[in-house]
Design a protein around this nucleic acid. Structure first.
Length: 693
DNA sequence: ATGTTCCTTCTTTTT
DNA sequence: GAAGGAACAT
């Protein structure tokens, strides 16, 4: 025992870790690829590694960057590090998502990146309306492409690092359907974003990459800052994010990436798990570590999972999960006649698990491939009086009333934001309909200024203008005065008080109260006015939080309203439910898609609709790598279960109003072959045929 | 400007 | 089969 040891022994860090985990945590400084199977304690390894870097390697916290995909993961990591070190240290760490990291850099270097300070971050739905605006103005009908599809084409081009000019050169012009989109819509989209000072999600990354590419000095500065870079869920990175990491890491930095190619389920969104292989190729002397010891599930569940994924031929790394909990319960595979029977069986089984096995309802997860599958299940659970909640569906910040409130804030912050203005200029109705807007538009186009500036000019020149312009000015004056007044008082009020004033003065709150009153039939409906009030609460707690962090805040983040709306745009889904509250339901069964379940675990898992043309989905299999991605989806679903796993499939199912013959999924069939000749006791599952009744 | 009716269209969605 | 959009009517 050496009490005088100044350099802390890593024992406290590696206690309870298995050998490969320990190797990952205590490896000498260098590049590392950790292939971490489901439930193998990867977050723990990441957190311990960061603590090791801090305490043993004495790397200052401000030189460590940990990148995740969700805010939730980033917060959780920071919190766990705070517990192992100190809140002080944890605050100095850079733990953030790709997007919030880029936002921070762009706010700091806006002019250098070709952006005006105070730019607005827009979400995918705003991107859609912008595209629809452009399509209307250019009179292009989309040739079967909807605005949202055009928007996602643009987004995916950006995620490949391609601007409008580059994507045209890159041979995408060969696609006849894409041509008008590339030639007219994309360049116009870029132009409008530039004029209105808007930045969409993929743009955050692309701008940052271009900024770092073009400025060697700035790049070097960042590379010297980020000595140790850690990236979670690396299989989900896209081309652009891969390049971002390359630009941020210098010759003296070390990069550690953690991922699992078997859990790559966002390929359709541009994620490319081959980045794991690329990492090995592009980085020097990468230490490769495989984590296969699973702490989550019983061996029966793992056997089934291993068997399913084995049929994928394009896996990067062969691996097999070994459990530590023993065999555990057998998996139940249930064959049903139709979805009604499946729903009934589900409700009964949940009751059984809850009442006989004492499993709390909130430790039970029901997973499905498509959102619409929940409908029937909801009805059945309601009837049997089993409390449940649904993850996903409509998100709080996507709700119309919230988007409208945010649009007012956007306009107040950024006068150039025509998209925001056009959204709310007549909400609530101000007699500014089609006619007035068309007249206004001609003036805007003649002047070449933003809508708000044009309105300001019109109002100022009311006396001297022609008769037509005078009437136009008179109609627009109240709206102009409203926005000006709000702009003027912004600095005098706290964030929540200001928001309250905006909702009241614009008439938005009264407008939605009126709508609620008329529609107040179903109590399950979200009252819209209530949602707006929730927005105020949300802003209040945001203001409180930033008060605490004020000491750490960098000067560019001082504008509370600006950081609030950027924040609410980048914070969404799992953290807030449709009512805008933090989502931590108790005593309720959780229903969600398999995609939404990634990263979660439950004592008991039900996978419903494990059948042909559902899982694998009929449409997915036509895509390149589609079938294998669906199989990975099945693998993710199965590996969510700790103790109980129930899989069900139907022989027939209504899909889009028609009765289809579905039946057992290819994945289950292939898995079952291995066990065909084994006696029942040796199979990891019990098969029940309910279809005969 | 708001309500209606018909018609089309169906994944998954970390930010 | 249900929801969202477009065309139409009030």
């Amino acid at each position: 025992m050496d009490r005088l040891e100044t350099r802390p022994e890593p024992d406290f860090l590696i206690k309870d870790l298995n050998e490969s985990q320990r190797e990952a945590v205590c490896a000498p400084l260098g590049n590392m690829l950790i292939v971490a199977g489901a439930g193998t304690g990867k977050t723990r390894v990441l957190v311990s590694r960061i603590c090791y870097l801090l305490k043993v390697e004495n790397i200052p916290a401000r030189n460590i960057l940990a990148v995740t995909f969700t805010n939730k993961a980033a917060d959780e990591m920071r919190e766990r590090i705070a517990r192992s070190t100190s809140p002080e240290v944890a605050r100095q760490l850079w733990t953030s998502t790709f997007h919030s990291l880029c936002l921070r850099l762009l706010r700091a270097y806006a002019p250098m990146a070709g952006l005006k300070p105070g730019f607005t971050v827009i979400d995918p739905s705003n991107m859609n309306s912008l595209c629809s605006r452009i399509m209307a103005e250019t009179h292009w009908n989309g040739q079967g492409l909807k605005p949202s599809e055009v928007a996602s084409k643009i987004a995916s081009l950006k995620e490949k690092g391609l601007r409008s000019d580059a994507s045209y050169e890159c041979g995408y012009a060969a696609d006849p359907q894409l041509q008008p989109c590339l030639r007219t819509v994309y360049p116009l989209y870029e132009k409008i974003c530039e004029q209105e000072n808007l930045v969409d999600f993929p743009e955050l990354i692309l701008r940052t990459v271009e900024l770092l590419r073009a400025n060697p000095d700035l790049r070097q500065l960042q590379q010297r800052r980020f000595k140790e870079i850690l990236v979670d869920e690396f299989q989900d990175t896209n081309t652009l994010q891969f390049e971002l990491i390359e630009l941020l890491s210098g010759s003296l930095s070390h990069v550690l990436v953690v991922g699992d190619d078997d859990q790559s389920i966002y390929g359709w969104r541009g994620a490319d798990y081959h980045n794991m292989r690329r990492f090995l190729e592009n980085y020097a002397e990468v230490r490769q570590i495989k984590l296969e010891q699973n702490y989550r599930s019983g061996q029966n569940i793992l056997d089934l999972a291993n068997r399913i994924i084995k049929h994928n031929s394009s896996r990067l790394v062969e691996k097999e999960l070994h459990g530590v909990k023993g065999e555990g319960e057998k998996v139940t595979i249930l064959k049903c006649q139709d979805q009604n029977q499946e729903a009934q069986y589900l409700a009964l089984s949940i009751q059984y698990l809850h009442q006989e096995k004492g499993i709390p309802l909130d430790h039970i997860g029901v997973l499905y491939r498509f959102n619409h599958q929940s409908l029937l299940l909801e009805q059945e659970l309601t009837q049997k009086r089993i409390p449940f909640c649904i993850f996903g569906g409509q998100k709080f910040y996507e709700r119309e009333e919230i988007q409208n409130a945010i649009a007012y804030l956007r306009l107040i912050l950024n006068s150039a934001d025509d998209s925001a203005l056009l959204r709310i200029i007549n909400v609530p109705a101000r007699k500014l309909g089609k006619k007035v807007l068309a007249d206004l538009k001609t003036v805007v186009e003649a002047q070449g200024k933003s809508y708000l500036q044009t309105i300001a000019d019109l109002v100022a020149q009311e006396q001297t203008a022609s008769k037509e312009l005078r009437t136009l000015a008179r109609k627009l004056k109240p709206f102009y005065e409203l926005i000006s007044e709000l702009k003027a008082v912004r600095g005098e009020l706290s964030l929540p008080d200001f928001l309250k004033k905006v909702l009241k003065d614009t008439g938005l709150l009264a407008y939605y109260q009126e709508i609620d009153k008329k529609a107040a039939l179903k109590p399950t409906d979200n009252f819209r006015a209530q949602n707006l009030e929730e927005l105020v609460n949300n802003a209040a707690s945001f203001a409180e939080r930033s008060q605490e962090e004020r000491a750490e805040a960098e000067p560019e983040e001082q504008d509370l309203l600006l950081s609030y709306i950027s924040n609410i745009t980048l914070t969404s889904t799992t953290e807030l439910n449709a009512q805008g509250q933090s989502f931590a339901p108790t005593q309720m069964v959780k229903l969600m898609t398999i995609h939404a379940a990634k990263g979660l675990e439950f004592e008991a898992v039900f996978i419903v609709g494990f059948e042909q043309s559902v899982l694998p989905s009929e449409r997915a299999v036509s895509r390149e790598d589609g079938l294998e991605e669906e199989r990975r989806l099945a693998y993710v679903a199965v590996t969510r279960a700790q103790d109980y796993l129930f899989i069900s499939y139907c022989m027939f199912r209504y899909l889009f109003g028609h009765l289809n013959k579905t039946g057992i999924s290819l994945f289950l069939k292939q898995m079952g072959k291995v066990y065909k000749n084994l006696p029942k006791e040796q199979k990891p599952y019990v098969f029940i045929d309910h279809a005969g009744y």
